[in-house]
Amino acid sequence: GATAVSEWTEYKTADGKTYYYNNRTLESTWEKPQELK
């Protein structure tokens, strides 16, 4: 079936920290989303 993983994109900030952005909800988070675990 369809999965929600594709909504999240992993980015890195200029200082090398990783964060996650959800293209559907426009939410961003420092925590790894449940969908990616």
Score class of each variant (00 low, 15 high):
Gly1Trp: 13
Gly1Lys: 04
Gly1Pro: 14
Ala2His: 13
Ala2Phe: 12
Ala2Met: 13
Ala2Glu: 12
Thr3Asn: 13
Thr3Arg: 00
Thr3Lys: 03
Thr3Trp: 10
Thr3Cys: 14
Thr3Gln: 14
Ala4Ile: 13
Ala4Asn: 12
Ala4Met: 11
Ala4Tyr: 07
Ala4Lys: 05
Val5Lys: 07
Val5His: 12
Val5Met: 12
Val5Cys: 15
Ser6Cys: 08
Ser6Trp: 10
Ser6Thr: 10
Ser6Phe: 10
Ser6Lys: 09
Ser6Ala: 11
Glu7Arg: 02
Glu7Pro: 05
Glu7Leu: 05
Glu7Gly: 05
Glu7Lys: 03
Trp8Ser: 00
Trp8Ile: 01
Trp8Thr: 00
Thr9His: 11
Thr9Arg: 10
Thr9Glu: 11
Glu10His: 03
Glu10Ile: 12
Glu10Asn: 02
Lys12Thr: 12
Lys12Ser: 07
Lys12Gly: 03
Lys12Leu: 11
Lys12Met: 12
Lys12Pro: 02
Lys12Val: 14
Thr13Gly: 08
Thr13Phe: 04
Thr13His: 04
Thr13Tyr: 03
Thr13Ala: 08
Thr13Trp: 03
Thr13Gln: 04
Ala14Ser: 11
Ala14Glu: 12
Asp15Thr: 08
Asp15Tyr: 05
Asp15Gln: 07
Asp15Trp: 05
Asp15Cys: 07
Gly16Lys: 01
Gly16Ser: 03
Gly16Asp: 04
Gly16Thr: 00
Gly16Pro: 00
Gly16Arg: 01
Lys17Thr: 08
Lys17Phe: 08
Lys17Ser: 06
Lys17Glu: 09
Lys17Asn: 06
Lys17Gln: 09
Thr18His: 05
Thr18Asn: 05
Thr18Ile: 11
Thr18Ala: 07
Tyr19Cys: 07
Tyr20Phe: 06
Tyr20Val: 00
Tyr20Asp: 01
Tyr21Ala: 04
Tyr21Trp: 11
Tyr21Ser: 04
Tyr21Ile: 12
Tyr21Asn: 02
Asn22Val: 00
Asn22His: 01
Asn22Asp: 03
Asn22Ala: 00
Asn22Gly: 00
Asn23Lys: 08
Asn23Gln: 08
Asn23Gly: 06
Arg24Asn: 15
Arg24Cys: 09
Arg24Leu: 15
Arg24Gly: 09
Arg24His: 15
Arg24Trp: 14
Arg24Asp: 11
Arg24Tyr: 15
Thr25Gly: 01
Thr25Ser: 02
Thr25Pro: 02
Thr25His: 01
Thr25Asp: 03
Thr25Asn: 02
Leu26Arg: 09
Leu26Tyr: 14
Leu26Gln: 15
Leu26Met: 13
Leu26Phe: 15
Leu26Gly: 15
Glu27Ile: 07
Glu27Ser: 05
Ser28Lys: 14
Ser28Pro: 03
Ser28Phe: 15
Thr29Met: 06
Thr29Ile: 08
Glu31Lys: 05
Glu31Asn: 07
Glu31Tyr: 08
Lys32Met: 13
Lys32Phe: 05
Lys32His: 04
Lys32Asn: 04
Lys32Gly: 03
Lys32Val: 09
Lys32Thr: 06
Pro33Phe: 02
Pro33Met: 02
Gln34Met: 11
Gln34His: 11
Gln34Gly: 10
Gln34Asp: 15
Gln34Leu: 12
Gln34Lys: 09
Glu35Ile: 05
Glu35Ser: 10
Glu35Ala: 11
Glu35Tyr: 06
Leu36Ile: 08
Leu36Tyr: 12
Leu36Asn: 07
Leu36Arg: 02
Leu36Glu: 05
Lys37Tyr: 14
Lys37Ala: 14
Lys37Gln: 14
Lys37Glu: 14
Lys37Ser: 15
Lys37Asp: 14
